[in-house]
Amino acid sequence: METRNIIIFDGVCNLCNGAVNFIIKRDPQQRFCFTPMQSEAAKDLMSRYSLVSDYGDTFFLIKQGQCYTRTDAALEICKDLSVFWKLLLIFKVLPRSFRDFFYNGLGSRRYSLFGKRDTCMLPTEELRSRFID
C-alpha cells in the first residue's frame, strides 16, 4: 500500500470531496489514490502515522513513506499535477506557520462554508480502483 501516493480526506466534507474530484481530473497518470478518513484503511494509516486524534480539520498525503499535512500536503500534491499547478510551489518560500494559519482558518470553517454530507462519497465504477476501502 505504501508504494502509492495516498490521500486521506474527510469523506463527508463537501470541500474535501471537491478537492478529490479536482485532483482526479488533473492526475491522468493516476499517481494518487484516495481513502476517506472514516474508512478502516484510513484509520489504520492514521494510527500508523500517529494522526488519530491530532488532526480533525485537514487531509493527509502519504507519499514514499512520509506523511504530509495541511499546506505541505497540498503543495506536495501540486508537484505531481500539471505544469500550471506546479507554479503554486512558490508558496513554499512562505513559512509553514504562515501558510497553515490561513489553511487552518478554512479547515475549521469548511462545514459551515461548504456543507457536509450525511455519508461518504461513493466513487463511480470507473474510479473505484483509485479508492482504498
Rank of each mutant, 00 (worst) to 15 (best):
A41L: 02
A41I: 01
A42V: 00
A42W: 01
K43A: 05
L45Q: 03
M46H: 00
M46A: 06
M46Q: 07
S47K: 12
R48V: 03
Y49F: 15
Y49H: 10
Y49A: 05
S50R: 09
S50V: 02
L51T: 02
L51Q: 08
L51E: 06
V52A: 08
D54Y: 05
Y55H: 12
G56L: 07
D57W: 07
T58G: 04
T58Y: 03
L61Q: 00
L61H: 00
I62G: 07
I62W: 04
I62D: 06
K63L: 05
K63P: 02
K63A: 06
Q64F: 04
Q64C: 08
G65S: 05
Q66I: 11
Q66K: 14
Q66W: 02
Y68P: 10
Y68F: 15
T69S: 11
T69K: 11
R70Q: 13
R70M: 10
D72G: 04
D72R: 05
A73E: 05
A74I: 13
A74M: 12
E76K: 09
E76T: 13
I77N: 01
K79F: 02
K79C: 08
D80N: 12
L81K: 04
L81E: 08
S82T: 08
V83E: 13
V83T: 11
V83S: 08
W85R: 00
W85V: 03
K86P: 07
K86T: 02
L87P: 06
L87S: 14
L88T: 06
L88K: 01
L88G: 15
L88F: 15
L88Q: 03
L89Q: 10
I90Q: 04
V93H: 04
V93R: 07
L94E: 06
L94G: 06
L94M: 14
P95M: 03
P95Q: 10
S97E: 13
F98I: 14
F98C: 03
R99C: 06
D100S: 05
D100V: 00
D100Q: 05
D100A: 06
F101M: 15
F101I: 05
F102R: 00
F102G: 14
F102N: 01
Y103I: 00
Y103N: 00
N104T: 11
N104F: 02
N104V: 12
G105H: 12
G105P: 02
L106Y: 01
L106W: 00
L106S: 07
L106R: 06
S108P: 00
R110P: 10
R110W: 01
S112A: 15
L113F: 15
L113G: 02
F114W: 10
F114D: 12
F114M: 09
F114C: 12
F114V: 08
G115I: 04
G115Y: 10
G115F: 11
K116G: 10
R117N: 15
R117I: 07
R117P: 09
T119R: 14
T119D: 14
C120F: 08
C120I: 13
C120V: 14
M121D: 14
M121F: 12
M121G: 13
L122K: 14
L122Q: 15
T124V: 09
E125I: 13
E125C: 11
E125V: 13
E126L: 11
E126Y: 06
E126M: 11
E126T: 13
E126D: 15
L127F: 13
R128G: 09
S129Q: 13
S129K: 12
